Simulated assay, not measured.
Amino acid sequence: MVRAGLTTERLVHAGAELADEVGFEQVTVSALARRFDVKVASLYSHLKNSQDLKTRIALLALEELADRAADALAGRAGKDALTAFADVYRDYARTHPGRYAATRHPLDPEAAAASAGRRHSQMTRAILRGYDLAEPDETHAVRLLGSVFHGYVGLELAGGFSHSAPDSQESWTRILDALDSTLRNWPGD
């Protein structure tokens, strides 16, 4: 019999909280069962396995991040939009490090198609429309932004900037200024 109150949605949210506490890689169905003080077998009516749990956490995290980014971008353009978008990623990673790690989790084609990944891409391209880039430069710019945002946040979360001056926020602001300048002055062929 399924324990009262356990639903797939509740388990995925609890798994996301667990990821933020112990790290995404440490999330398993067994760890989740311990959290609810139930037998592992009782969760298999809601989840296939730990991979299924991780995929569902990744989908949740991508959706949460896309919702926050959409709210932050409303009515903004150019550098203001670029900064708002970048800050959402950084703030989400700092607030929800396990969920943020989940956004990098590889998804199978079916899960990827159902994810908010497309929304992230559309928002990034909407920001870039303000910089008047044509293809393939727009795709190069999408890759540049993703690399900088994820790379900086990853290094920052790992403590890479905590022991040196200038302050990490100052560097972040300067990097966003440099990205804006690069996008406005994109190199020609």
Results as ranks from 00 to 15, higher is better:
34 R>Q: 15
36 F>V: 04
37 D>Q: 15
37 D>E: 15
40 V>A: 11
44 Y>L: 12
45 S>D: 14
45 S>P: 08
47 L>N: 09
47 L>S: 11
48 K>H: 08
49 N>R: 02
53 L>H: 07
53 L>V: 11
55 T>F: 06
55 T>S: 05
56 R>G: 11
59 L>C: 09
59 L>K: 14
61 A>V: 15
62 L>M: 13
62 L>P: 03
63 E>Q: 14
64 E>D: 15
65 L>F: 11
67 D>L: 14
69 A>Y: 05
70 A>W: 02
71 D>R: 15
73 L>W: 07
75 G>H: 03
75 G>N: 04
76 R>P: 07
77 A>F: 02
77 A>R: 12
78 G>H: 05
78 G>A: 05
79 K>F: 08
80 D>C: 04
80 D>I: 09
82 L>I: 11
85 F>P: 04
85 F>Y: 15
85 F>D: 10
86 A>P: 03
86 A>G: 10
86 A>H: 04
87 D>R: 01
88 V>I: 13
88 V>H: 06
89 Y>K: 10
91 D>N: 11
97 P>W: 02
97 P>R: 05
102 A>H: 02
103 T>N: 03
104 R>F: 12
106 P>F: 01
107 L>F: 13
109 P>V: 11
110 E>T: 14
111 A>L: 00
116 A>Q: 05
116 A>I: 12
120 H>Y: 05
120 H>E: 08
121 S>D: 14
121 S>W: 10
121 S>A: 14
122 Q>Y: 09
122 Q>E: 15
123 M>H: 09
124 T>W: 02
125 R>C: 10
125 R>D: 10
126 A>W: 03
127 I>K: 07
127 I>C: 07
128 L>N: 07
128 L>D: 04
128 L>W: 01
130 G>L: 03
130 G>H: 01
130 G>T: 04
132 D>S: 10
132 D>Q: 10
133 L>E: 08
134 A>G: 11
135 E>F: 11
136 P>M: 12
136 P>F: 07
137 D>P: 11
138 E>N: 07
139 T>R: 10
139 T>V: 14
140 H>L: 14
141 A>T: 02
144 L>I: 15
145 L>F: 02
145 L>A: 00
146 G>Q: 07
149 F>K: 04
152 Y>V: 12
154 G>Q: 01
155 L>I: 15
157 L>F: 02
157 L>P: 02
160 G>H: 09
161 F>Q: 02
162 S>H: 07
163 H>M: 10
166 P>R: 03
166 P>F: 10
167 D>R: 06
167 D>A: 06
169 Q>K: 13
170 E>F: 08
171 S>F: 08
172 W>S: 07
172 W>C: 04
173 T>G: 06
174 R>K: 12
175 I>N: 00
176 L>R: 13
177 D>V: 01
177 D>N: 03
177 D>I: 01
179 L>M: 06
179 L>F: 00
